[in-house]
Structures are given as C-alpha cells and as structure tokens.
Design a protein around this nucleic acid. Structure first.
Length: 740
DNA sequence: CTGCTCGGCCTTTTT
DNA sequence: GGCCGAGCAG
C-alpha cells in the first residue's frame, strides 16, 4: 500500500520518497519535512522488497536514530535495519570486524577528557617544554588530523610550523598509548573504519554489498572521515541518499566540511537533486525574518523558503538591563503565558550560544517554581562519583584501560600516592605491560612498599575478582563494584554532607543501568558503557514531559517548538567573539542564529541585555549585529522589560562601533585581565573593566583593562575609531558614562 | 609519602 | 565559576 506512504506528501517530497536506485541529494530547507521524507523513504524501500539488512540510515544523534526506528517500525513492523549515528556505526563495525582488523573488541571509548590525559602524558614523554601548548589544543589538532584521515606519519610530513610539529610528535606517542590502553577516541570510530575501507578492498566490498542503500541525514555537517565512509559504502551500489541544508551547517569547527554537500553532484554525476523549499513549521513573519538574516551570508547558494502558514506575530526583540533581569523576565513571561492558559510549559524552548549562560536561568526557574530541563546530557555522568564508578566498570571490561586505572586505583584512598604510582607506571613501561598487570606483580617491585604496596595489591584483587562476574547484568555489576571496592562504605562513613548526595547519584546510575538492561536482556555492561559515552546532549532530552527546554543552539538542531526565546543575542556571544576575526566564521555564527530562529513555530523572541556578568566581571554588551539584519517589517522592539533603558551613550557607542570597520571588533573581544580591588588604590575615579566612558578627545569607548596602583594606575580603553589607548588613570580626561 | 587546602588560571559550540 | 598544581601538615 505505497499510496498510504505518499498521500500527505507534496510532489517534491513524493519524488524523494519513491526515487529508486542511484544517488540522491535532497536539499531540505529548515522545516521542510525532512525527517518525514527520510523516514517514508526507508519505509518505501522496505515495501518495495528491499531487505531490511541492506539498508543503513545514519542520523546525527542517537535520539534521532531512535525516533526514526520507531517511525519506520510503525509503518513496517519488525524490520531489522541499521539506524545509528556515524560514531555508533563505527563502534559497531570495529567490534564486529575486530578479528579482521586485528583489534580487541573489548576496547574502551575515550571521551575528550580521557583523551587529554593521554595527550598530556604523551606530551610529557617528549620532554618538550610543555607550558606552551595545552593538552587540549594538541588534542584538538590530533583530532583534526584524524578527521582528515591523516596518520601520525602523514601529519608529521605536512607539519611546517612549530605547533604542528609538536602536535605531530605528541600524536605518535598518543597513538601508542591509546593502542596500549586498548582504547579508541571519538575520532577513531570514524578514522579506523574509514581507513579500513580505503585500504582493505575486500572488507570495503563486503560492506558495500551489505549496505546496498545508505541514507545520511544532516549531510552538511559531515567531515572528511564520515564522507569517506559514506562514499566507500556506495561504490558498487551507489544508492546513496543524502539529506541536508547548507544553511544549517554549524559544525565546521569540528571538522565538518560544507563542501561535502555542495560537491555531491560532482562526486556523483548521476545524482538526482530534489529541493524542498516549502516550510511547514513557522509563521510567515518568522520565516521571513530568518530568511532575510541568512541571505546576508555571501558564500551561499540562494534559496527561498516559502510557507502557507499564517503571517503570525512579529518577531520580538526584548531588551533587558542585565543578564539577571533577562533570565527573570523570560521565566516570568513563560509563567504568565501558562497561567493564562495560552501555552503549556512544554511549548517553550530557550536557546543560548554557550552553556555557561544556563546558570542564571536555572536559578530563575527554581525561584519561580517553573519546571525546566537543561539539555546537557552528560551532566549526570560527568559527576565525579559517577565517573569513578564508570571507571571501575570500564576496567572490568578492559583491564588495559590506563586512564580508568589511574582514576580509581586510589579511590577510595588505599594509601597509593603519586610517588608509588609513578613507580608503578615506570615499572609497567619498562616491562611493556599494562598497569593492571604491573599491579598484579606489585610484590616484585621493591620501590613500592608498605601501605602503598598492599593498596595496589588490594586493588588488583578487587578488579580480578569482579572480572569473574562479568556475565551479570550491568546494574548488578555496579552494585558489586560499590561493595567490593569500598566506594559505598567510604561515602556512607563520610561526614561530608555532599557525600550523601553522591551516594544518591550513584543509586541513580544503578537505576539507569537497570532500565537499560530491562529494555533488552541481551545488553551487556560494555553496551551500557558505550551507550553512555556516545550519548549526545539531546539524547537525554525528554520532550514528553511538561517543562521548558533549555539548550545550546547546537543542541537545538532538528527540533521545533511553538515558542522560542533566544538569549544573549549580543555582539561577542552571538556571533561569538572567537569568530569575529574571520568572515567565514561569522557566517557560521549567522547560520547558528538562523537555526535557532527557524526552530520557532509561532512566536520568536530575541533577547539581549545591556550588562552581563562574565566570571564575576560586569560587562556592557552591544546588541548582536544580526539583530540589525532583521527586516523591520516583521520585527517589533519591546523595551517594556527595561524600565530605564538608557539609549543615549550606548547607542552612540554602538553606532560608532561600525560593524564594517575592520580595525574594530565590537563587543568584549578583549577579555579583562585583572581587576584591582576597588578602593585599594584610593583611585578617585570609578573605572572598572567593561565600563563605558566618555573621553574628551576620543569620545565614547569601553575600558578593557586596569592595572597598577595610585599614580602608576593605568587604564586601557577601546575606542570605535581610534582603537585601543592606554592612559594614566589619574590623568585621563574621561568619565564613566554608565555606572554599575 | 600521602592527602588535603588554597590560590591562580581559563572559560564556544560536541560525537 | 571550576580545575589543576603547588605547598603544607600529619
């Protein structure tokens, strides 16, 4: 009954669904029913008699994968097709083909923290000055290299500057350590399968014929490694269907390459291209506003979105005095709307550019008793106590896991300090054995004695004993770990009040493991651990509960809400200050703004505050340049939130800031270094970092730095036209225009 | 030698 | 506001 699958679709959508064999590119504008099309297409293929096992659908998050699986299952029940993310596909392939790839299938997946620890170790081992480059930066460079499928050798050959050369050295050592720990980092999950398919033609051909139909969602955000995988799965059976929207590409910083989607037709000359431009989500006002903004991007294929939806309310710009008032104001407005029965809490979403902004919001929600969920999936598993327990579990599955070993060998304290640990590590390195094996023969290491020695021995026994219990379900294993390791006892005996909370959190972990197991009894501890590590932020989001959803713009991709509030649309935050130097980066920020706007179905509020606290420092904020790009005919300014919004000085400064002036980066581009304690210098003026000042000669500017005392006190001010100037504070002919 | 506390440093976005 | 390293006490 294929007609059922097509009945409610437009001609364009139908064409995409019924496309048979051969490459297919679906350019799907925001809100054009992309998910529906891709789901129907899978169902259609199944109805056409394509075996479920030969379809592979790749989504951006596990949550999207789960939803698609449900939808496909509702149409064609009991199918067994692969729907997963690129990363979980990689993990699955690596475990399934472990023998052919000569790897141990019990590998642990390292997250960025774990990675950085190994990077730091590798960096230290090079004996180079390690103060210059942080493990984080070096790890980032290595990650980028892997995403481009560069081996340590290849990366080294093209490393010409000092940083890259350092990174290349560290990359070598890092890889050695990863393999020794039997661990994979996130990038390996793409890098290794991609390279395997590039150099192992037999394996590649097997997979190609296994997955005759490959569908990739959010194709605009694929990186080189992902591209390689998709491409090599589609050589003999080029039935690759990719769906995406170049205007929603927001992961360039993570190595994604917009060219993958722009060049699809070059890669597959036979490709059929279908463009979906009908928007079903937003009002005309919202769509017009969003389209006008995205149209400012120079490097863009023009594309018009249209909707048959009503005009709707204008997009509203809300001005607030401070970040605090912004949070309060938004929460109050939401509370009011619900009290007046205009909406449910679940209708609302609040987006922001950076996670740090959720904090003030959280207290406002608590204060007003408004239910909310901050969509930050890993927050729970990121807690120290849970990370500790997970480290024990990882060690059970993979005793070679160095990072986990070091994390819990002395947790709870077993008298194994840094010195003893260093000795254990060097013994293990000397003998080329894992830390766990070294721990097993701690009696043979004379430098480790007394309490440290017995502590290591005890730890070894605990892990070894627990390893014999591996066939138990995950939640039971966690309980055993808690008892045998003494972790539970240590928390129970503690006088620290927080330890009671920690214990409660661990109990929640047990519950989570039990739920996971109850859903499917064949799931192992290893599966549980993998699922946690590969979980994305939105995976934990519960859209059915009646609460306000709070998330970053990145997490918001693919979602929709009746009412959207976008916080802190301020220069320096959106666009983020780190992007201001390059046009292409600003364009990505604009796409991010566009993604946020197009999530809204009925109402869209863009908020900004004049004053915002950063790390304890109050900073004057300039409204985002993107707000100036909004079409006036569908936008309303609402300054009712801001009882004494002082336009004068700020506006003048902002005007002079001139976004076109390349010598001036508006917003708090320069971060304040240090603030002297007020009054300590007896400074007569009231200068503070972030203050807007009026200078006799240079006009309006903003203080970016203060230093020194008394007569030596210096104040640095950034002026729109003149750039940055430093004055002796006592002598500076200027005054603070706007006080704190 | 271990373990705790204090202070200095940095903070985009994520699988 | 959170993490790491240094410094100090037991």
């Amino acid at each position: 009954m294929p007609t059922d699958l097509l009945a409610d679709l437009t001609d364009e959508q139908q064409a995409a669904v019924v496309h048979g064999e051969g490459p297919l590119l679906i350019l799907a504008g925001a809100g054009s029913g992309k998910t529906r099309v891709i789901t129907r297409r899978v169902a259609y293929l199944l109805q056409q008699g394509v075996r479920a096992g030969s379809i592979l659908a790749i989504t951006f998050t596990n949550k999207a994968a789960g939803e698609m699986r449900q939808r496909v299952d509702a149409i064609v029940p009991g199918n067994k097709l692969w729907i997963c993310t690129f990363h979980s596909l990689g993990a699955r392939l690596l475990r399934q083909y472990a023998d052919r790839l000569n790897i141990d299938k019990n590998f642990t997946i390292y997250d960025v923290d774990d990675r950085n620890k190994l990077v730091k170790d590798a960096l230290d081992a090079t004996g180079m000055d390690n103060t210059k480059f942080t493990p984080d930066r070096l790890g980032g460079a290595i990650s980028k290299a892997k995403n481009q499928l560069l081996t340590p050798k290849q990366f080294e050959q093209q490393a010409h500057d000092f940083f890259s050369q350092t990174a290349a050295k560290v990359y070598h050592g890092y890889e050695k350590r990863l393999r020794a720990a039997n661990a994979m980092d996130f990038d390996d999950l793409l890098y290794l399968p991609a390279l395997a398919m590039r150099y192992n033609e037999e394996l590649r051909a097997d997979l190609d014929s296994r997955f005759k139909f490959v569908l990739v969602d959010e194709y605009q955000d694929t990186n080189s490694a992902q591209y390689e995988i998709a491409r090599r799965l589609s050589l003999n059976y080029p039935n690759l269907c990719v769906v995406g929207d170049p205007d929603q590409s927001i992961y360039k910083w993570r190595g994604s390459d917009i060219k993958n989607i722009l060049d699809f037709e070059r890669d597959f000359p036979a490709a059929k291209v279908i463009t979906l431009t009908q928007n079903y989500r937003s009002t005309k006002a919202i769509l017009h506003a969003a389209s006008t903004v995205i149209d400012q991007n120079k490097h863009r294929k023009k594309k018009m979105l249209v909707t048959a939806n009503p005009q709707g309310d204008p997009v509203t710009v809300l001005n607030f005095n401070s970040g605090l008032e912004e949070a309060e104001g938004v929460v109050e407005r939401i509370k009011k709307a619900v009290a007046e029965k205009r909406n449910h809490y679940r209708d609302f979403a609040i987006f922001m550019r950076i996670n740090a902004l959720t904090r003030t919001l959280e207290s406002a929600f608590v204060k007003h008793g408004v239910p909310f969920q901050i969509v930050k999936g890993l927050a729970f598993f990121d807690r120290k106590e849970n990370k500790d327990v997970l480290a024990y579990l990882r060690l059970l599955v993979n005793p070679d896991d160095t990072v986990s070993f070091l994390r819990v060998v002395n947790e709870p304290p077993r008298g194994v300090g840094k010195t003893s640990l260093d000795r254990l590590v060097s013994y293990a390195n000397r003998n080329e054995i894992s830390l766990m094996n070294a721990a097993g023969s701690v009696a043979k290491i004379p430098e480790i004695k007394g309490k440290a020695s017995s502590g290591v021995r005890d730890f070894y026994r605990i892990i070894t004993d627990l390893r014999t219990q591996l066939e138990h379900p995950p939640h039971e294993l966690i309980a055993m770990v808690l008892d045998k390791s003494g972790y539970r006892k240590s928390l129970q005996d503690s006088t620290d009040e927080e330890d009671a909370d920690r214990l409660a959190n661990i109990e929640e972990l047990v519950t989570a493991a039990k739920q996971y197991y109850d859903e499917d009894n064949s799931r192992t501890l290893g599966d549980f651990l993998e699922q946690i590590t590969l979980a994305s932020d939105v995976d934990s989001w519960d859209e059915t509960a009646d609460h306000v959803s709070v998330m970053t713009l990145h997490a918001a991709k693919g979602l929709e809400f009746p009412v959207v509030y976008l916080l802190a649309t301020e220069q320096g935050l959106l666009p983020h200050e780190r992007s201001l130097a390059k046009d292409e980066d600003v364009e990505e920020e604009r796409r991010l703004f566009f993604v946020g706007m197009t999530r809204a179905m009925k109402e869209l509020y863009l908020c900004h505050a004049r004053l915002r606290e950063f790390r304890g420092q109050a900073m004057y904020q300039v409204p985002s340049m993107f707000l100036d790009e909004l079409p006036p005919d569908v936008v309303r300014q609402d300054i009712s939130q801001d009882r004494n919004f002082a336009r004068g000085a700020i506006d003048e400064w902002r005007q002079k800031a001139g976004y076109g002036n390349p010598n001036f980066l508006p917003g708090p581009a320069e971060r304040p270094r240090k603030m002297e304690p007020t009054g300590a210098s007896g400074d007569p003026s009231e200068f503070f970092v972030g203050a807007v000042v009026q200078h006799d000669e240079y006009g309006i500017g903003q203080i970016t730095d203060l230093s020194g005392f008394g007569a030596l006190r210096r104040v640095k001010v950034r002026f729109p036209a003149a750039g940055e100037k430093t004055f002796v504070a006592d002598k500076a002919k200027m005054k603070v225009v706007k006080r704190k």
